[in-house]
Design a protein around this nucleic acid. Structure first.
Lengths: 197, 197
DNA sequence: CGCACAATTCAACACATGATGAAAAACGTC
DNA sequence: GACGTTTTTCATCATGTGTTGAATTGTGCG
């Protein structure tokens, strides 16, 4: 939309760097890492591709820069765990939604989610995030058999994220957060503390 | 692995076409559509890239060919529905697993799943598959508010597929099918017929 | 055998992509 | 106002991709 021709520095003090970063976030969130091209990001920011490289070196660097200010999931889980097992399912879903529904976080989380799901970055989730970061925390909420319960929780959480945010399945995507909490929370609670065969 | 040099037709009667197709299936299943290159498929089949095009025209055609012999989900759901709402959750999970655990089906289903999740093919799931194909069928099992219950079922099913097959999360991936049925089935049943706020 | 046909590879094109280095234009400072 | 610095574009390269057409070798049929 921006017709830019002349070479050299632009007049005024436009924060082009921030625009590039925003464009990159949007593209990574929508199309994942492979689906994002430096040229498309540049075009969407109304800028020459070389400028993208000038500000953020390589494409990997740009990806990392787009993910800055991440959420520390362990930090978030602290209050969920502190109140014990009772109602932990609902608290967990509420906490999850509070960060995923925040647009600022959402673009970053979508970017990493897309890339984790599509490419071989699945290892990151499988060998890193779930067992190392989130597993031990959840294990504190669980009565027994954490090795079975934690992945069951993961399956419902992943399904929620995929349907509500990644593919934005209509009734799932625009359901008020508290409705989701009331409907999915009990299932999580069941996986955490209910009877399992 | 196969050192092939000489030009022209190979001696014997090797079914090269089938090998190419198998390589394509594996690659589409593992890396999705974008992540799959004709050259890689050809190399994996020990064959020149041009041969891939010779047998299956364009890359899109190859993708379609790799997906041949699909499962008709409506067909599969018939017996699940016929027996009524009681125990439908477990039957649904069992049916789902029976097709996804079959290696023959799995490569094809993984290919389409990967591509649906990564690229903008999400529309296919969102506007086509879930509301048109699977939604009306499930609606027959549901006591009330199908517009809420069907997507909830979808969220748990998607989560199951992603964790068990796409990222192969260890305890989820190698859990015996009947264990999954016993653990996830009741949750599906709850989404179908249980109390919802 | 001779000959049509199928199977297979080679060489190459056109294009998109990530990346680089040099040049031009505005800014800030003395 | 001169000058170094920052911001921006241009031109270009190397590489990987999908795709095509010609060339080569084996098979099967008369």
């Amino acid at each position: 939309m921006t017709a830019r021709t002349s070479r050299g520095r632009r007049p005024g003090a436009p924060d082009t760097r921030a625009e590039v970063l925003a464009a990159a976030r949007a593209s990574f969130a929508g199309k994942g890492f492979r689906g994002t091209t430096i040229r498309a990001v540049a075009a969407s920011a109304g800028v020459d591709p070389a400028l993208v490289h000038h500000y953020f070196g390589t494409k990997d660097d740009l990806f990392l820069a787009a993910l800055e200010m991440p959420v520390d999931p362990r930090q978030l889980l602290v209050p969920v765990i502190a109140q014990g097992s009772d109602g932990a399912g609902e608290r967990l879903v509420r906490t999850l939604l509070s960060v995923w529904d925040d647009p600022e976080h959402q673009v970053r989380l979508l970017a990493v989610a897309r890339s984790v799901l599509s490419e071989d970055g699945a290892t990151l989730l499988k060998d890193g995030f779930i067992p190392v970061v989130v597993g031990p925390a959840l294990a504190q909420l669980v009565t027994d058999r954490p090795d079975v319960r934690v992945p069951l929780v993961a399956s419902q959480v992943v399904g929620l994220i995929v349907t509500r945010y990644l593919i934005a399945l209509p009734p799932m995507a625009d359901m008020p957060a508290e409705d989701v909490v009331g409907r999915v929370g009990p299932v999580i609670q069941h996986y955490l503390t209910g009877d399992l065969p």
